[in-house]
Amino acid sequence: MIEAYNIKEKGYHPFIVKEGWQLARLNFTEAQHINQIIRLDVHLKTDEIFIPITGKSVLIAASMVNNEPQFETELMKINHIYNIPKGVWHNIAMEEGSEVFIAEKSNTHVSDFEYFPLSNAKKEELGILVKAQLESQNG
């Protein structure tokens, strides 16, 4: 009757997919490294809930102005709940060892996403913002 899950593999893993909702775990992977964010993604049919459970992660949101992302970043606190509303471009920058739970509509990872590639200038800008968030905790 009781189901238990412990996902340790790197990357994104939807592990409970039910009618209308799903829970996933995002474990650090090189693509999420603070220096490796190369794109943003958006969901048009669902909000996305993030709950960091260990490590250091920075939530990235962006609005588009003249087809250029204007970033907002926040260092996520462990066990706090963060929501990215549907239609908001976003990503997560993570340090090695970081883990985040994600709740969203079911099968979002299959069909409800678009990507926006970042220019080199925007990657550099984002890297500076993410590092500033991480340093604010250390300083």
Rank of each mutant, 00 (worst) to 15 (best):
V17Q: 11
A132K: 11
T73M: 01
G20E: 05
E72P: 04
H13E: 09
S111R: 13
D112V: 02
A103K: 05
S136N: 14
T108N: 00
N27Y: 04
I78P: 05
H33A: 14
E125P: 07
P69N: 02
Q137P: 05
N67F: 03
I51L: 09
D47S: 14
I84G: 03
K123L: 01
E74L: 05
F15A: 06
E9C: 12
S57A: 15
A4N: 13
N35R: 07
V42A: 05
A132G: 06
E68V: 14
Q32P: 11
E68H: 08
E48Q: 11
S57V: 11
I16Y: 11
N79V: 06
W89I: 00
K56S: 12
V110T: 15
T54P: 08
I2K: 15
T108Y: 04
I16V: 15
I7Q: 15
V17S: 00
A93F: 03
V130R: 01
M94W: 04
L126C: 14
G139V: 05
G55W: 02
H33S: 13
V58R: 01
K105Q: 07
M1S: 13
P117L: 10
L129N: 02
W21V: 14
N107R: 14
L134E: 07
L129S: 02
A62R: 04
L40M: 05
L126N: 01
S63H: 15
M64E: 08
V110Q: 15
H13K: 13
Q133F: 12
G87C: 12
N67Y: 05
G87A: 15
S111M: 13
A93W: 02
E99D: 07
S119K: 05
F50W: 07
S57L: 06
T46E: 02
F101Q: 07
K56T: 13
N6V: 01
I84M: 06
G139Q: 04
L59A: 10
E74G: 01
S111K: 15
K86C: 02
F113Q: 10
M1F: 06
I92Q: 03
N91P: 06
Y82V: 03
H13W: 08
G87T: 08
Y115D: 09
E19S: 14
N120F: 07
K77Q: 14
A103N: 03
R39K: 11
E30M: 09
V110N: 13
V65W: 04
T73P: 01
A62Q: 04
V88G: 09
E124I: 04
I49L: 05
G127K: 01
P14R: 11
P14Y: 10
A61C: 13
P69I: 02
V130G: 04
L40P: 06
H13C: 12
A61H: 00
I92A: 07
S111I: 13
V88D: 03
E72W: 07
K86Q: 12
K131P: 00
F101A: 07
H80I: 02
N66R: 11
F15T: 14
P14S: 11
M1C: 10
L75A: 02
E19H: 13
M1V: 14
E48N: 14
D112Y: 10
N120A: 09
H43Y: 08
E74N: 12
E48I: 10
K18V: 11
A103P: 00
A4D: 05
E68T: 07
G20F: 10
E48G: 06
I38W: 05
L40R: 04
S98Y: 01
V42E: 09
E99N: 08
T46S: 00
I38R: 12
A121V: 12
A62V: 02
S136L: 11
M1T: 08
N6E: 12
N6M: 03
W21F: 15
